[in-house]
Design a protein around this nucleic acid. Structure first.
Lengths: 355, 355
DNA sequence: GTGAAAGCGCTAACAT
DNA sequence: ATGTTAGCGCTTTCAC
């Protein structure tokens, strides 16, 4: 606002690409770069007279000064960027996680860089590039579900700030996990409380860490209710809609059929439900369906799916908090998101069994 | 591999955080930094003897050298990062777009930084920061649907490399748009071809650019079939599931009722379908439902939704191609993705009208 | 209170 | 064919 120094015409000079630099601000304010630097970033605001300070602020303002990201990053050896690496961008669930990561990152002053996990190129490469080239300060990494934990172990530099999502590598990386056991337990308990006794489980792949934990939760709830989890009532096909469909087909071959099923994943549950329609199976009349994991899609199926909301958003936030902590005081932690507990949302797909 | 120069002990010095630099490689190979720089980035590979070259390559290899991102970015005034800014990370459709952007970016040697669009903070700020601080070279920007085009106009620096998704700002930014007109037309044509004549439209907000275009497509198809689009057969409530439900309620009050409806968005269609169930309306018996925009969720509803796949993935790819072009030869373009045309996917929710 | 200068790691123009 | 050097824009001692 203050007219000062240079003629007005000079101002318009700043062209398209040419960004305003610190020294331009300095010369406009008639001070040194270091003074500008100090003032602009608040450091040692003290050792500058109020007038100089104001002059600098004005100059920066008028010139629309923006600190150059690369220069700062180079100097600080910090980018304030976190990498988010996931196997499948198209998954509706990942969306929630990403959202949590995004919000968490913003809250801590970081931005998020998306990492690609090519199926072909080894995950190692991605990680090495992101971290090794200093493109990011830390990494939130969701390994492909069902990936060999040992190989994961291999590729993790224990000194790097990486947090694993829904898998663990003790001593090599931090981890944040959703409460899979509790989630599955909740779903099964709900079915039990409705009076079901023949409760099947449409689970994920046996190699999957989350699938194992959800299975455990299911079995715990069964046993707690005095029921015996039956081997043939369990499938372990996977988390996709198609795999959910296949799970239903298998369950239908059983005699007697289960009266209820816990599906370990919404996507699979939606597929299973669609297949039930296709096969003329009445849900919930003949078969109650409860799913672990909720998403908006679950409430718009017919009947709407009873689901257990898992805290993916919170997990994303925690994951960021975890890397940031690691970055700041080197702490490596393993955490299960228990706090907002898995939340049962009863909708139309579950009712008491027919008598 | 070549034992050369420094004692072996020296090697292990490199600690956790300390990244290997060019000069370390240089001294290990016994050459100058510039030689290493040239060789490692392939430039002028010529003016170096094969032996030196090999020595450098080996040294870099052994030291696991990685070029520092910030240093390169500073020097080149380029980050090879593209910003992706969208209003809602949680939208299933955005997911496809993001995927296309990701793939496109990777193909062009860029990575993707997620931009936040706080509802509170002005979009200006986000853009200014990302571009102004040089965190990204260009921007793929999806303005909030229904945002005032003029205000968008305001905040766009016409010199910046930004491409708009599904909205336009002629002369200020490039744009890539999905074929909304064609998509809606296709959906309506399908219904017409089944023999429907009372075809309603559950549209998006009137201010929305896409909604306007989809409405146009619908009307075009109606007129082409000799039908008159009726004002009272159109709602313009919005794209969410809840708004789809409301649209159905309104349509049900009509007399005579439409026998078919084109919904301008999957999410709304899913809501509309769920509401139909809730109201005991038989789909497709009493009402055929076709939706513009497809997603995997549409095929798992009951009945599965007939939908028109819009090319969001392709749009993402094109958007990246567009920014890259702009970055390289300054070209500003406006493009409609016509090439993979909107694709009709007939599923169970549409049948001929009852006689 | 303010400024000069070194240096973060890299590239490119310019010697040799 | 190889090396020297001057920055890129910023932060940060260290002098004055």
């Amino acid at each position: 606002m203050e007219a000062e120094g240079e003629p007005g015409s000079e101002r318009r000079r700043t062209s398209a690409t040419a960004a305003v630099t610190l020294s331009e601000v300095a010369s406009r304010a008639g001070v040194s770069v270091s003074a500008v630097s100090k003032v602009l970033r608040g450091t040692a605001a003290i050792r500058v007279s109020p007038e100089t300070r104001q002059r600098i602020l004005d100059a920066a303002q008028e010139l629309r000064y923006r600190p150059n990201f690369a220069a700062r990053a180079l100097q600080a050896a910090r980018t304030q960027v976190l990498g988010l690496v996931v196997p499948d961008l198209t998954n509706a669930l990942f969306t929630e996680l990403m959202h949590g990561v995004e919000d968490g990152a913003a809250a801590h002053g970081y931005t998020v860089l998306l990492g690609r996990l090519d199926t072909d190129r080894p995950q190692t490469e991605v990680i090495a590039r992101l971290l090794g080239e200093g493109r990011v300060d830390g990494l939130v990494l969701q390994a492909t579900d069902g990936v060999d934990p040992d190989s994961l172990d291999q590729l993790l530099d224990p000194r790097a700030a990486v947090v694993l999502i829904n898998s663990v590598a003790s001593g090599r990386a931090s981890s944040v996990t959703v409460d899979d056991v509790g989630g599955a337990r909740t779903a099964t308990e709900h079915l039990v409380s409705l009076g079901h006794t023949r409760i099947a489980l449409a689970g994920g792949l046996p190699t999957s860490y989350t699938a194992q934990r959800r299975r455990r939760g299911h079995q715990e709830a069964m046993r707690a209710a005095g029921l015996v989890p039956r081997e043939d009532h369990e499938t372990a096909l996977g988390y996709t809609a198609e795999q959910g469909r296949e799970a239903l087909r298998r369950l239908l071959r059983l005699d007697p059929r289960p009266t209820a099923v816990v599906v370990a994943n919404v996507n699979a549950a939606i597929g299973l439900l669609a297949e039930a329609h296709a096969q003329g199976v009445d849900v919930p009349g003949e078969l109650s369906v409860a799913t672990v994991l909720d998403s908006w899609t679950a409430e718009n199926t017919w009947p709407p799916l009873t689901a257990v909301r898992m805290q993916f958003y919170a997990m994303g936030e925690r994951a960021v908090a975890s890397v940031v902590r690691r970055l700041e005081d080197g702490a490596m932690t393993e955490e299960v998101v228990l706090d907002p507990p898995p939340e049962l949302v009863v909708r139309g797909s579950t009712v008491p069994p027919r008598t």
